[in-house]
Design a protein around this nucleic acid. Sequence first.
DNA 1: TCACTCCTGCAACTCAGTTGTAAATGCAAC
DNA 2: GTTGCATTTACAACTGAGTTGCAGGAGTGA
Lengths: 139, 139
Amino acid sequence: MITSDLLRRHDLRSTPARRTVVDSFLGAKSARTLAELDEAFDGDRITLYRTLKSFEEAGLIHRVPDAAGQPRYALCGDDCGPKAHDHTHAHFQCDDCGQTYCLPRVAPITQVLPKGYRVQEVHVTYQGTCQVCNVPAAL
Amino acid sequence: MITSDLLRRHDLRSTPARRTVVDSFLGAKSARTLAELDEAFDGDRITLYRTLKSFEEAGLIHRVPDAAGQPRYALCGDDCGPKAHDHTHAHFQCDDCGQTYCLPRVAPITQVLPKGYRVQEVHVTYQGTCQVCNVPAAL
DNA sequence: TCACTCCTGCAACTCAGTTGTAAATGCAAC
DNA sequence: GTTGCATTTACAACTGAGTTGCAGGAGTGA
């Protein structure tokens, strides 16, 4: 079973609650808010918080900064684990459907910085209309 | 008086509470968290919330998205007002001192986006070491 | 099957932020 | 300088997000 494997690969026990959360991520192509995850999760609110924390520590998911400051969560790539995270990709937030998508990696754009600044990470978030909502109604 | 003028230019009444908040912004070159503002503010917590909300609506300050999702506030440029905001500049968050600075405008980097996405705004946040903390100890 | 470790759910709590309201204050008109 | 009105401030009370402690239950390896 894919879900259980995914959990075990990150040294996480396979429990019903955790499988529900992972399935919720696998079933959605965009980053999930806590409210969205809570809706698909019939267990305790505290369990969800702890589950997400465990997932984050294990490198299974990562937190996506929302334009409004609201936290969102998305599945990590295969390269991520408890010791190394690679989240230099950009995020796209759609004003129409409200979804947040992970985009391919951004090219470094550090040259615009004034002298003296040393950059470790770059977070880029686009706001606009996504592929799905941008399709003309005629189609 | 500069502080009062700044308030009146944005159609805001000049009150002691507001002058304190504006002075706190003028005295700091980096974006302020609510906690930092609250420390410099001896009035009511609720007054601070409402003051910041008024300032934001009047285009005097803008909200800066922190890497951790914590809201920060910074003074707007002269171009900003209640009707138009121009916040296409980037922000730099220092891992050493924890400060967040507004940087010059970023060049558009929309070409990395897959087809079908229409971009309205780009939020760029750098994380690393700022000018001040990056100075070698020998200096 | 058993024992141990980790997970889950419950209760209780803290803290950030909001709403309603009455009193105080700023500011413009006279 | 005084007055009146609109706005601002402070207080009380509330809501909701997130955390902590703990006991019981479930997963996993021997």
